[in-house]
């Protein structure tokens, strides 16, 4: 399982959170999504054979939110 952290531009409405959460949960390979409202971050766990962090960041961008940085952590093996 690959972990990724997306740093977004400041989130202001709690419903944005639901939007991002809902959209990401539907993506292929995504196991866990946690949107941190106050830190404006998304923490993701996904199967890297089914999806990439950049593609997921693109989904968030398409919802109209700025993605400032993408950090990917490969599982230690």
């Amino acid at each position: 399982m690959t972990k990724a952290v997306l740093q977004l531009g400041a989130l202001t409405c709690p419903s944005c959170m639901q939007k991002i959460q809902g959209a990401l949960e539907k993506q292929a390979g995504v196991q866990k999504v946690k949107v941190l409202f106050n830190a404006s971050k998304v923490k993701l766990e996904f199967d890297d054979s089914a999806n990439t962090a950049d593609a997921l960041a693109e989904v968030v961008k398409k919802l109209g939110y700025e993605v400032k940085s993408v950090k990917v952590k490969q599982p230690a093996e």
Binding site: Q18, K19, G22, A23
Partner: peptide, 16 residues
């Protein structure tokens, strides 16, 4: 309206 439509796409009925 744009925000409202985006939200609807992910089946969220928002304030917008």
């Amino acid at each position: 309206i744009i925000r409202a439509v985006e939200a609807l796409k992910v089946r969220v009925i928002g304030i917008e």
